[in-house]
Amino acid sequence: MKTLRRDPLVRGLGLASAALGVPQVARPADVARGIGVTAGPRQRTATLAVGVRELAAAGGLLARPHPVWLWGRVGGDIVDLALLTRALRRHDGRGLGRTALATAAVAALTAVDVYAAVTRTGRGSETTLTATTTVSTSPEETYAFWRRLEGLPTFMAHLEEVRRTGESTSHWRASAPFGRTVEWDAEVTEDVPGSLLAWRSLDGADVDNGGEVRFSPAPGGSGTEVRVTLRYAVPAGALGRAVARYFGEEPSQQLDDDLRRFKQAVETGEVVRSEGAPAGKRARGEFPQHPARPLTPKELKETLS
């Protein structure tokens, strides 16, 4: 299960778009002449427009890969083929060979784009979640609390265990639906004490994922603004669908709740429990809750275990 981000074909197409787009935007007249087309104002404008589109596709494919950019390329290819066919029909003969060659190249590229779009659609896709909160501790203290990765499971609902395995590596285990668990190794990719922590899963992860937390001083020195971004691949296949549904309950609500519990833990030293939501982090805000009355000894044992 690969993310589009690390898919060589997708990256290749993104780089190809960039390679085409830059000269088209920078020197539209030369490009038009290069493919054997008269460089009149109409042709120059068309070339410039095509270049802008290529750069957009390049940006999309490289920065936020998604099948929609691949289909965008297919659509662009069709427009290009139409323009070139028109040029061929009205050709004055000078440089006809180069125009024909360009047309053939675009046709071939179209085939690759269609292949990529078809095969990459409905496979894995990536989901990004963000959440933010303000806590009354300093950026340094707040960062330090998060940096102790082993402590994350106390407030992050799905995490069961984070174990340190090296200087910058750790092993993570999270609960998945139907009593399953998913595991992965992760490495810290950026670490700026008091301001930034980023990590990503290493090859072989059950679910590719990564994230970052930014810590910045709140206005007036009144604490720390914490911004979390989580990315994970929603993989294809049965497990993938289950994971998607699982996270899909209300994924952003869950991250909000995780962050709320983080705030509770940092500020008060504990995750707050009530009779209605006695399990602390396992309380998923679902209804009905436990009634607002004390738990029986048996319930208590189950909850606190």
Partner: peptide
Amino acid sequence: CGACAACRARLYSCCENSNPNAG
């Protein structure tokens, strides 16, 4: 909770930490 910004501002009934069903 006594520790959040609301509690520090003495707005106790707006405490940011004491409601596990804050969502």
